[in-house]
Computed example of a mutant assay.
Amino acid sequence: MPEAVKERFVLSVEGLEALLVALRGDGWRLMGPTVRDGAIDHAEIRGVVDLPRGMTEVQEAGTYRLARREDGALFGYSVGPRSWKHLLFLPKLRLFRAHRQEEGFQVEPESTEPPRLALIGARSCDLHAIAVQDRTFLEGPYKDPDYAARRERLFVVAVNCGQAGGTCFCVSMKTGPRVTSGFDVALTELLEGGHRFLAEPGSERGAALLARVGAVPAGEPDARAADAVVERTARSMGRAMDTTDIKELLYRNLEHPRWDNVAERCLGCTNCTLVCPTCFCSTVEDTTDLLGGVAERWRRWDSCFTLDHSHLHGGSVRHATRSRYRQWLTHKVASWWDQFGTSGCTGCGRCITWCPVGIDITEEVAAIRATDGARPGA
């Protein structure tokens, strides 16, 4: 039996504003794209007025800049430097605070009531990344309570990509550009024949919201136009990665000379892991005040590119840049499958754009594939 066609609706720009106003009225804090510090970044917004109207991005390996579009598109870009990870897996989180008492310490537990966030403009690659982090933090034998609390308090207004970035390769990873899951409302921005949005509900509360703001059923021309937007984006990917048997490819090439080649260029700066929407390395720090009366334990982001991250008794087990880059790439697209049953890469391209020396994960995989089994001196 063919799949049932989901009902689609049309929203004007004014209708989108009404949707955002309704979300704010329901107590949701709106987090969406806005121009800040020379980039399109996620921050708190008030409504349509704060969206990056008429702005886009030009991205290449080691290169990012904003540019003007010739239209008034509100979502006419691909992905900015930050995913939604920093809102769910906080860069710095206090785990507990303890006060010295006459006999021992009194522990002050942390609050587990995070804000209710509405993610505005979430892209398919980033929603797949959230699903990957769900496996990391929620689906194993131990659940992360802070992540779980934040994850439960989300409303997602997704956007199907109308433009691929120069470093995007989500088609290769089967993670975009069309949003398929993890959303309450999905929008496709249409510019020809009037500025409007095709809206698709992904949950009961999303359908209820569209009904409240007066979304009207979409006709066949608008539905076809929206499909054409996504198909055009899929054909214009800036990058591609051949993932055929990629786990086995990397496992049998752990001593490939390409690791030495990339190590000569890699700065070990950790940018790739910080912008990656799925990387989850962290460390724990204990601090006390000068009098020893108050102690705190903090969790903060870390990176497998730092020397201390793999420190065991006697020193780091990955003392060379070569081994640290190999660990990152091999874990991302190979051993992640063994741990979580999925790839750790969603093809967003941020690691390529924000690498200061332009190291390209798709290029590195292709180079290893081109000389599969090569050894030094071979």
Rank of each mutant, 00 (worst) to 15 (best):
M1H: 09
R8I: 08
R8E: 15
V10T: 14
E14W: 08
V21K: 10
A22M: 08
R24H: 08
L30G: 08
P33F: 01
G38H: 04
G38T: 06
A39I: 00
I45P: 12
R46W: 05
V48S: 14
L51W: 04
P52I: 15
R53K: 14
T56Q: 13
T56V: 15
Q59H: 00
R65H: 15
L66N: 13
R68N: 06
E70Y: 12
D71K: 08
G72L: 13
F75P: 02
V79I: 07
R82W: 11
R97I: 04
R97K: 09
A98T: 12
H99V: 15
E102T: 15
G104V: 13
E110K: 09
P114W: 01
I130W: 04
V132D: 02
T136D: 01
L138V: 00
D146F: 08
R150T: 00
R150V: 03
E152M: 08
F155L: 06
V156T: 05
G165Q: 09
F169R: 09
R178K: 07
F183N: 14
L190A: 06
G193S: 07
F197N: 10
P201W: 02
S203F: 06
E204V: 08
L209V: 08
V216T: 15
V216A: 12
V230G: 02
T233M: 12
A240T: 15
M241W: 01
D242H: 00
T243F: 03
T244S: 15
K247N: 10
P257F: 07
N261M: 09
R265W: 03
C272L: 02
C276G: 05
E285R: 15
D286L: 09
D286Y: 02
T287E: 10
V294P: 10
V294H: 12
V294K: 11
E296V: 13
R299K: 09
R299Y: 11
W301E: 00
S310V: 08
L312M: 12
L312N: 11
G314Y: 05
G314M: 14
G315W: 12
R318Y: 06
R318C: 04
T321Q: 11
S323Y: 01
Y325S: 04
W336F: 08
W337C: 01
Q339I: 03
G341D: 01
T342P: 00
G349V: 07
C355Y: 02
R369Y: 00
A370Q: 08
G373S: 05
G373D: 11
P376N: 03
